[in-house]
């Protein structure tokens, strides 16, 4: 009851966006660390993939948790976005940004683009019928990554999508703190800098893989 009442307010919805944002951010970091094992070679990456599958119920718990987080994050975002549209029914003839970043103003572009990308990515490297598996039915992650990124079009899509992820996180990482009420003149400027740096590292790390495939695996 009380949770429902909290969610009724804009402040409560933002808290949900922040809480689910932390989970998604944690996933993105973990996923990056997994991806970077590409550079350890086929055995290491494929063993990592197998070990993940061996987690069994735990893996499914994580998947369902992430799915719930994505759905909550999106529904809060869409509900707030609709409220915000209603709050400004007539538009300015001229509106000049005086203090906001481009990334912060375009969260409702970068977010939905990410949702589309997540769908494509799941098909392209997790679920699609074109993916290779070993005799025991475990995915041959390394071979699939190389085959997938050998197509410059697919690689290009990933590079573009990762740039949007970087923009979303540049604002999102510090925004989480603000939404749950943590802002301090001493720490917030630092958090903002760490947010930009972290977003840049995530983008660079993820983009390096399709780039490496295109350059060295043809």
């Amino acid at each position: 009851m009380r949770v429902a009442r909290l969610y009724d307010s804009t402040v409560g919805k933002k808290a949900v966006m922040a809480a689910t944002g932390v989970l998604l951010f944690g996933f993105v970091i973990t996923h990056l660390l997994g991806n970077l094992q590409f550079y350890l070679g086929p055995e290491a990456l494929n063993a990592y993939g197998r070990n993940l599958r061996h987690l069994g119920a735990l893996l499914w718990a994580a998947r369902l948790g992430l799915l719930a987080a994505v759905l909550l994050h999106i529904s809060a975002a869409v509900q707030l976005w609709r409220l915000n549209k209603q709050a400004r029914p007539s538009h300015y003839e001229k509106l000049t940004a005086a203090g906001s970043s481009y990334a912060s103003r375009t969260m409702m572009w970068s977010g939905p683009i990410l949702a589309l990308f997540i769908g494509y990515h799941l098909y392209h490297l997790t679920l699609g019928a074109h993916l290779l598996h070993d005799a025991d039915g475990f995915p041959l992650v390394y071979q699939n990554v190389v085959a997938g990124f050998s197509d410059p079009l697919a690689s290009g899509l990933y590079i573009v999508a990762m740039s949007f992820l970087g923009m979303h996180l540049m604002h999102g990482i510090w925004s989480m703190f603000q939404s749950i009420g943590w802002n301090h003149p001493k720490y917030t400027p630092l958090i903002k800098r760490i947010a930009v740096l972290t977003a840049a590292l995530i983008v660079a790390g993820n983009i390096s893989i399709p780039v490496a495939v295109l350059l060295f695996h043809q």
Binding site: T10, K13, K14, L83, N84, A98, H171, W174, S175
Partner: peptide, 12 residues
């Protein structure tokens, strides 16, 4: 509307 933490308000 709701706050999206963008900071236009404090700028003006």
């Amino acid at each position: 509307g709701s706050c999206t933490n963008i900071g236009e308000c404090e700028a003006v």
